[in-house]
Design a protein around this nucleic acid. Structure first.
Lengths: 196, 196
DNA sequence: TAATTAAACGAACGTTCGTTTGATTAATAG
DNA sequence: CTATTAATCAAACGAACGTTCGTTTAATTA
């Protein structure tokens, strides 16, 4: 056999990326073999290389896509005119919801930075900092407007991001709290902790 | 050549564990090869097996040691008689300081859980939950004593742990703030966020 | 000093890895 | 209907992997 009936290149590529996300999330990038990836897609190992330059390039593509998508989705949602408190609450809600819905992407982006080549890593780190700058900007505006007391913006931003991202490592769909309830708790904690 | 002059088994074992921590922190467990580990120690690959049962057992030993040490060190320090606010501040200080000082251990324990065998993983997860229970207990006592308002203890504990652990991922010794200053900022945020 | 143990070497084992290649079949275009 | 392109297979590549083992030398004990 060679080309299989009904095969479409674009579909196979999509399937490869989806399977890669699933496997890397579960076992880690280095632990995932191209043979496992191919088997998950239902294809021979060599066939993956029609859609992927190398294993490293695959990881880089996944991470880059995630970071770009994260930044774009926040920019789409952000209401520039609102007051700092509303914007902060919106950021908390967005970050938690987005990270829960794309758990695989987030786990990969946060756990596999070390597996990325030097140059690609720098690129992802830059994009991450770019996203975090949105939060720092909200905090700075709040302080300037007198809505927030003087906090260390850099530390506060790191702390907030860490606790929000952390949610997707313990959240379970059948857990005690709904996503909305979890968001509400975090909004309260963030506002109290930063706003004082 | 065979046995090298001045070689001592205990020293070699120590060197192997230290090198393993360093390499796993930098590149990840799967990415570290036994040949790299041996080279770092200055020994032949096969010689590592005099001190280590297998690569998997090495990871398990590292993680287990870390979790036990973490729990023991907190228990040593905890003042049971103090009020909830003092205990919470003490926990924040301990956690940040301990995690910064043992960055490699922490990175391994947090990033390499997936590389651990099923049974070993369960063991580490249990120990982690056991450590986190200390924080939950402090929060619960605070609520009961009326010192803290009603917060969701489970979520609050996760959030606090996440933001505290996160410090050792961005902390730099030559950074703007000292460890003490970072601790102070976090104590303030935690107390505000939880105590209200 | 002779016998024993501790520590490491060096070479090899079978396996699996990421990757390449050429043949083969399905879909598409002229 | 034929020629071309898209998509996949089957097989293989060399390299590197974790691990084992018999040997050799240093240290220790008797």
């Amino acid at each position: 056999m060679a080309r299989t009936k009904g095969s479409v290149g674009a579909d196979t590529k999509t399937a490869i990326y989806a399977a890669a996300k699933k496997l890397i999330e579960a076992k880690g990038f280095e632990a995932m073999t191209l043979r496992q990836l191919a088997a998950e897609v239902g294809v021979q190992p060599g066939s993956v290389y029609r859609y992927v330059e190398s294993k490293d390039e695959l990881l880089q593509a996944l991470m880059n896509q995630h970071m770009i998508s994260l930044i774009e989705n926040w920019e789409k949602l952000e209401g520039k005119g609102d007051d700092p408190v509303s914007r902060l609450k919106a950021f908390v809600a967005f970050h938690i919801r987005y990270h829960i819905e794309r758990r695989a992407d987030v786990v990969i982006a946060n756990l596999e930075l070390r597996s990325l080549g030097e140059d690609y890593r720098a690129d992802v780190v830059t994009k991450r900092s770019q996203y975090e700058a949105n939060l720092r900007s909200i905090l700075a505006d709040g302080v300037q407007a007198g809505a927030f007391p003087a906090v260390d913006l850099e530390v506060a931003a790191f702390a907030i991001i860490a606790m929000l991202t952390g949610v997707c490592f313990w959240y379970r769909p059948d857990g005690r709290l709904s996503i909305d309830e979890i968001i509400e708790v975090h909004q309260k904690m963030v506002l109290r902790g930063v706003v004082g």
